[in-house]
Design a protein around this nucleic acid. Sequence first.
DNA 1: TGGGAGTAGTTGTAAATGAAATCACCGTCG
DNA 2: CGACGGTGATTTCATTTACAACTACTCCCA
Lengths: 169, 169
Amino acid sequence: MKSPSKKEADSVRAAIAFDLDEFLPYRLSVTTNRVSRLFAKQYAAQFGLTIPEWRVLAVVGRLGTCSPTGVGEWSAMDKVKVSRAAAALVVKGLLRQTQDPNDGRGRLLRMTRKGVTVHSGIVPLARSIEATLAEGLTKTEWAALNKALVKLSEHVLAIEGPDPGGGPD
Amino acid sequence: MKSPSKKEADSVRAAIAFDLDEFLPYRLSVTTNRVSRLFAKQYAAQFGLTIPEWRVLAVVGRLGTCSPTGVGEWSAMDKVKVSRAAAALVVKGLLRQTQDPNDGRGRLLRMTRKGVTVHSGIVPLARSIEATLAEGLTKTEWAALNKALVKLSEHVLAIEGPDPGGGPD
DNA sequence: TGGGAGTAGTTGTAAATGAAATCACCGTCG
DNA sequence: CGACGGTGATTTCATTTACAACTACTCCCA
């Protein structure tokens, strides 16, 4: 994140000098994009999954059986994205979707045996990439980053009102 | 970022218990999305600008005159996004695009008077939203967050190789 | 001097996204 | 009962985005 160019630096205006580089939302965005790309590449290469798909699988793996809405709440994805990712996972044979016997509108998502296999294969991959990331920071920095992200995220939520859930991947 | 639902928690499997909630890339993504949404909403409401547009304007405002490529380097956007955002800003009358006299392929971007006005109006807005964000964290946490993001971002870059530049807005 | 390799920027196209509309169903109040 | 507001999930559609050609030009070396 250094000054990218040779002779451009000297045309800088002292004026209202706004430096994108020191602007938190920008930096957050750049970092997230890089990290997401790293994971997306690995998930796609090794398991043929997109990030939304992996997230849905992770939640269902975590909860055992749950509704698309439940997945959305746990994964901070909007229901459209959950619906599509779940459909894709069903096509891939990793998830089974059934009627909720207690509510005719509801669906229930469960992993198939194949889903369990893939899930238990991808969890170590996720952890291992995360570990690689963690190597770039000290333990203290890592912990601080996590804590700050949670606080910030909740603060924004408080300012803005509940979020629609979506977002890029 | 708490357990969202009542009776789902008890169906948790001890098994491979992977908790998305404690997974850094996920948290990074959620936080970034919330923050981006907050800014996008304000920029759109008050100035009719998208985030890529605002970024291009910020860089040109910072550098005075520069090439689309230069903007891309400073703003971490790919050239397509820069090209389109610049075109939109030209249409809106905030930027003027000319031929680079020294290179027939190159273009030069400069702000119009109107561009300067908008830029100097939007910078305080950006800073003020950032200040609102900062209220959610202590000064120390804020600084740690910034530092960790830069380190992490550069670490990923080192692992992955140079990035294509794009990303969500 | 002319041709191939490379760079700047734009455009075309296919996929991903999100908002709003839609469908199917629940629960309740009249 | 049976109509009405509300909720779960999917679908549709306009927009955004990324990837890949493409155009136009420069640079370098035979």
